[in-house]
Amino acid sequence: MPHALTEVDKALLNDIYYESLEDLDDPEAMFTYTLAKAMRKHLMVGQSEEHIYLQRFEITQIRLFELLIQQFPLANLSQHCINTLLIDALVNHTNPVLMDIGIGTGFQVSNMIEGLKNKSANQIKCLTIIGIEPFADALRLTEENIRRASKNASFEVKLIIKEAFIEQMTQGELSQMLPAENDGIYVNASFALHHIQQMSQRKAVFEILKNLNVKAFVLSEPNSNHFEPSYPKRFQNCINHYGVLFQIIDTLPINTTEKAALKLFFSREIDDVLGNTEKVRVEKHFATEQWVQLFEETGFLLQKRVASFEYLELNGTNIKTDLPDRYATEFEGEEITSLFWAN
Results as ranks from 00 to 15, higher is better:
328 A>P: 13
278 E>D: 10
302 L>N: 01
283 E>A: 01
249 I>N: 10
274 L>W: 00
285 H>W: 06
244 V>W: 01
269 E>H: 02
292 V>F: 01
258 E>H: 08
282 V>A: 03
236 Q>I: 14
241 H>P: 14
299 G>Q: 04
241 H>L: 15
317 T>P: 06
277 T>C: 08
240 N>Q: 11
305 R>G: 13
278 E>W: 00
320 K>R: 10
248 I>C: 06
330 E>W: 01
248 I>P: 11
328 A>Q: 13
254 I>V: 15
269 E>R: 01
276 N>I: 05
249 I>C: 07
274 L>T: 05
325 D>V: 11
300 F>R: 08
259 K>D: 12
293 Q>N: 11
283 E>R: 00
298 T>S: 13
305 R>Q: 15
299 G>P: 07
294 L>K: 01
309 F>H: 07
317 T>Y: 02
274 L>K: 02
280 V>H: 07
270 I>C: 02
300 F>H: 09
244 V>C: 00
308 S>R: 12
261 A>N: 10
234 R>M: 11
296 E>N: 14
317 T>G: 04
242 Y>V: 14
304 K>L: 13
234 R>H: 09
306 V>E: 15
300 F>L: 12
281 R>D: 01
287 A>H: 02
240 N>H: 08
269 E>Q: 05
237 N>I: 02
296 E>C: 08
233 K>P: 00
284 K>F: 00
320 K>W: 03
251 T>G: 12
316 G>I: 12
299 G>N: 07
330 E>Q: 14
327 Y>S: 06
319 I>Q: 14
304 K>A: 11
299 G>S: 09
263 K>W: 05
303 Q>G: 09
312 L>W: 03
245 L>S: 00
267 S>P: 08
239 I>S: 05
310 E>P: 07
233 K>V: 13
251 T>A: 10
311 Y>W: 06
253 P>H: 05
318 N>L: 03
248 I>Y: 04
290 Q>M: 05
330 E>P: 09
320 K>P: 01
301 L>Q: 13
295 F>Y: 06
285 H>Q: 13
295 F>E: 09
266 F>K: 05
272 D>F: 00
305 R>H: 15
272 D>K: 01
330 E>A: 05
234 R>N: 08
289 E>A: 04
292 V>T: 11
329 T>N: 04
291 W>V: 07
238 C>S: 13
287 A>S: 11
290 Q>E: 12
304 K>T: 15
319 I>M: 12
331 F>D: 09
285 H>I: 08
